[in-house]
Amino acid sequence: MFGHARASLTMPGDVPEGEAWRFGTFKDPNITQEVKFSGERRRCKHCLIYKPDRCHHCRICKSCILKMDHHCPWIMNCIGFRNHKYFFLLIIYSMLCCAFIGVTVIGTILESLEQEMPVCQRFLLLLCFSTSSIMGGLLVVFAAFHVMLMLRGLTTIEFCEKLSIVTSGKSSKYDMGAYRNITAVFGPRPYLWFLPVDPPAGDGLRFAKPRGRSLAAPRYLPHDPEWT
Rank of each mutant, 00 (worst) to 15 (best):
His71Phe: 14
Asn30Gly: 00
Phe159Met: 10
Lys51Gln: 13
Asp175Gly: 06
Ile31Gly: 06
Ile92Cys: 10
Leu113Val: 05
Ile91Lys: 05
Phe87Val: 01
Ser172Glu: 02
Phe37His: 09
Trp193Ile: 01
Ala216Ser: 13
Ser63Cys: 11
Leu127Asp: 02
Cys58Gln: 07
His84Glu: 14
Leu126Trp: 15
Val185Gly: 07
Gly137Met: 11
Tyr179Lys: 14
Leu139Ile: 05
His84Lys: 11
Ile101Val: 15
Arg82Asp: 06
Cys64Lys: 08
Phe87Thr: 01
Phe123Ile: 08
Phe88Trp: 07
Ile157Phe: 10
Gly212Val: 03
Met1Glu: 14
Thr10Arg: 11
Arg219Asn: 11
Tyr174Lys: 00
Cys120Thr: 13
Pro16Thr: 03
Ile182Met: 15
Ser63Arg: 15
Asp203Pro: 03
Asp28Ile: 01
Lys173Pro: 08
Phe159Glu: 02
Met68Ile: 03
Gly3Leu: 14
Asn181Lys: 03
Arg43Pro: 03
Ile109Met: 13
Met148Leu: 14
Lys173Tyr: 10
Glu116Pro: 09
Pro218Gln: 01
Ile182Asn: 01
Lys27Phe: 04
Leu124His: 12
His146Glu: 11
Arg54Trp: 04
Tyr220Asp: 05
Tyr179Met: 13
Ile101His: 07
Gly204Met: 10
Phe123Leu: 12
Pro222Leu: 15
Asn77Arg: 07
Pro16Trp: 11
Glu114Asn: 10
Ala7Ile: 09
Phe186Cys: 15
Leu192Asp: 02
Arg219Gln: 14
Ala216Phe: 09
Val105Pro: 00
Leu48Lys: 14
Phe100Asn: 02
Cys64Ser: 08
Gly39Asn: 04
Glu111Gly: 07
Arg189Thr: 11
Ala201Asp: 04
His56Phe: 15
Arg22Val: 10
Leu96Ala: 13
Cys64Val: 06
Met68Ser: 05
Thr167Lys: 14
Leu90Val: 03
Ser164Pro: 04
Asn83Thr: 05
Met148Ala: 11
Asp53Tyr: 08
Lys51Cys: 14
Ser171Lys: 15
Ala208Phe: 06
Asp203Leu: 10
Met11Ile: 02
Ala144Asn: 05
Leu126Asp: 01
Leu215Val: 03
Ser130Arg: 02
Ala20Ile: 00
Met11Phe: 08
Lys173Trp: 08
Ser38Leu: 08
Pro196Gln: 02
Cys44Val: 02
Ser112Ala: 15
Tyr179Gln: 07
Cys64Asp: 12
Met117Asp: 00
Arg43Gln: 13
Thr104Gln: 13
Thr10Glu: 12
His46Cys: 06
Lys51Thr: 07
